[in-house]
């Protein structure tokens, strides 16, 4: 039971965005992904979710999924959030979160067209589940508001809620804590920890090194598309290459 990527390589024209990157995350574990801007962190997520086709292989729970479309991977339990939130700003927060249920929708097309009562019951059920997740992330008061009225930080929380309602086995979070205030950050950290405790394997991209090293069981540092350090959070954070990449060569001693 793992989500593993082996030797992923991506080239954008002359730029080597990823060079033979491998990673592995098991259920219940949190893998932190750090690296300066342009290091290839989001590209790695795009490879794992099938948005771009890399060289190399992606395997989930023993099944190779390298050739699968994005939506098929979601149905196999890989959900993600985006660095720049993607959602319909004109819909309510609740609606936006309920979109996360799509892969496991029990509503048949015909039933939806006919407006059968079963569709209504299913929606009611999903609505309650979504509200629970919205509350968990501290957006309870805004459930009925237009998504467009939320701050950028809150939109990221909304995306976490949307990814969670999909019932994923692996969750890819792209800078979910950026732009959050302290109380929201604590709430997010709790939600991530709880998700991991419930058996979800998590990959977390984060620039705040303190936040990510406290949460993660393991860290992986990317610089220019290459893995420069991996392992126990404290050792990775202190490794020469990571310090150099973040702060510049002058700080390496």
């Amino acid at each position: 039971m793992t989500l593993s990527a082996r030797d992923l390589s991506v080239r954008f024209g002359g730029l080597q965005a990823l060079a033979e990157v491998s990673l592995e995350v098991t259920p219940g574990r949190i893998l932190g992904l750090i690296g300066p801007n342009g290091a290839g962190k989001t590209t790695l997520f795009n490879c794992l979710t099938g948005v771009i086709q890399p060289k190399g292989t992606v395997v989930v729970d023993g099944v190779e999924i390298t050739q699968l479309r994005t939506d098929e991977r979601v149905r196999r339990g890989i959900s993600r959030t985006f660095q720049t939130p993607r959602l319909d700003m004109n819909r309510t927060v609740l609606d936006a979160v309920m979109l996360g249920y799509t892969p496991h929708l029990a509503q048949g097309r015909l039933a939806c067209f006919l407006g059968l009562p079963s569709v209504g019951r299913s929606e009611e059920h999903l609505r309650n589940g979504a509200i629970e997740k919205i509350r968990l992330l501290g957006l309870g008061g805004a459930a009925e508001d237009r998504a467009g009225s939320l701050s950028l930080g809150q939109l990221r929380l909304l995306e976490v809620a949307r990814a969670l309602v999909a019932g994923p086995r692996y969750l890819l979070l792209d800078e979910p804590a950026a732009g959050l205030d302290e109380s929201d950050r604590i709430r997010l950290a709790d939600a991530i920890k709880n998700a991991a405790a419930s058996g979800i394997g998590i990959v977390l991209i984060e620039h705040n090194v303190g936040f990510v090293s406290r949460l993660s069981h393991e860290l992986l540092a990317l610089v220019n598309g290459t893995v420069v350090a991996r392992g126990e959070p404290n050792s990775v954070v202190c490794s020469e290459k990571v310090v150099e990449a973040y702060l510049g060569p002058a700080y390496v001693h």
Binding site: R69, D71, V74, F82, R86, L87, L99, C112, F113, G115
Partner: peptide
């Protein structure tokens, strides 16, 4: 009208707003 109110209508709306969003939330666009 029924379709738009259902979960599938929500997914359809996501396709219009942003295809990557629809795919990433599990819709076979």
């Amino acid at each position: 009208a029924s379709y738009v109110e259902s979960g599938r209508g929500r997914a359809l709306n996501a396709i219009r707003v942003d295809r990557l969003l629809a795919e990433s939330t599990g819709t076979n666009v």
